[in-house]
């Protein structure tokens, strides 16, 4: 492929990945990396480097839109970012010390997990236990806007959420993805934060988390401008469009299709890792 063909194909594919990633809430990274590695034969290190850059772009772009609505909680986000940034630094350092096959293997597992998770509906229950002492001390409890005025919420199990966030950071640094799914799991399921607050705060955190591994990636040469350029621009435009369409789209069918595609990619990634096609 010539440079022009490569840029057009990668840019178009990244646009589609960003679009679907925004519609299904899984992010573009989980599709971009397999696309580059499995379809175009790009070394997985260049693929995760380019994906990580696109993750920072989409997170910052989307967060800029979300913060105006007043759902995200910057205290929860900032506190948990201690865990995700340290995790991301650790993950990126691991990535520089293991083989491409090992990265591909973990990536395959995460794809399969994401496929299962994407079919689940978010919990909508409201928890009304007495406020948690630690969360109160950390001033995490807050309110979010609803049609009938501000709704207050309490935060629970801060240590458990903090630990899971460290794991999310490691995955992000190792695989060049946002690991938004794990972040939402930690906040929504463990810390009992309302879903809308969890997703917007998670999005807010993804950029900072990714920035923590970007330094390691860039200094090791994982971020090649020729690969990162079409991926970043494609995913960014695709996800901005996806976020616009999301409000009106019926995503249930799409989520099933996307889950299926991701599961297939996950299996192929595992196969390639085990049979030594990735190095």
């Amino acid at each position: 492929m010539t440079n022009l063909e490569f840029t057009v194909v990668v840019g178009g594919g990244s646009f589609l990945a960003g679009f679907l990633g925004a519609l299904t809430g899984l992010g573009g990274g989980v599709v971009v990396v397999p696309m580059l590695v499995l379809l175009l034969g790009v070394d997985i290190r260049y693929a995760v480097g380019a994906s990580l850059v696109s993750v920072i772009a989409t997170s910052s772009g989307a967060a800029a839109a979300y913060v105006r609505e007043g759902y995200s909680n910057i205290r929860i986000g900032m506190f948990l970012e201690i865990a995700t940034t340290i995790g991301a630094a650790v993950g990126a350092l691991i990535a520089t010390r293991v083989s491409g096959a090992a990265i591909g293997f973990v990536f395959g597992l995460v794809l399969l997990y994401s496929a299962v998770l994407s079919r689940k509906d978010p919990s909508q229950k409201v928890v009304n236990h007495p406020p948690d002492a630690l969360a109160t001390r950390l001033r995490m409890n807050g309110t979010y806007p609803t049609p009938s005025g501000p709704q207050s919420y309490n935060v629970y199990q801060v240590p458990g959420g903090f630990g899971l966030m460290f794991g999310a950071g490691v995955l992000s640094g190792l695989l060049g993805i946002g690991s938004g799914a794990v972040k939402v799991l930690a906040m929504d399921q463990v810390m009992k934060i309302p879903f809308k607050v969890s997703t917007t705060t998670s999005n807010f955190m993804i950029g900072v988390t990714a920035a923590a591994s970007a330094g390691v990636y860039l200094s090791r040469g994982y971020i090649d401008p020729r690969v990162a350029m079409p991926v970043m621009l494609g995913v960014l435009l695709g996800s901005l469009l996806g976020a616009k369409v999301l409000a009106r789209a019926h995503v249930q069918v799409l989520r099933y299709v996307f889950a299926f595609v991701i599961a297939v990619l996950g299996c192929e990634m595992l196969y390639n890792a085990v049979t030594g096609k990735l190095r």
């Binding site: 440079n3 022009l4 175009l40 290190r45 260049y46 040469g221 090649d224």
Partner: peptide
């Protein structure tokens, strides 16, 4: 646009853009 670049092998040194 017409030249070809291969990304199938990771080059530690690559460019000096690190």
């Amino acid at each position: 646009r017409a030249s070809r670049t291969h990304y199938d092998h990771f080059h530690e040194e690559g460019t000096q853009l690190t």
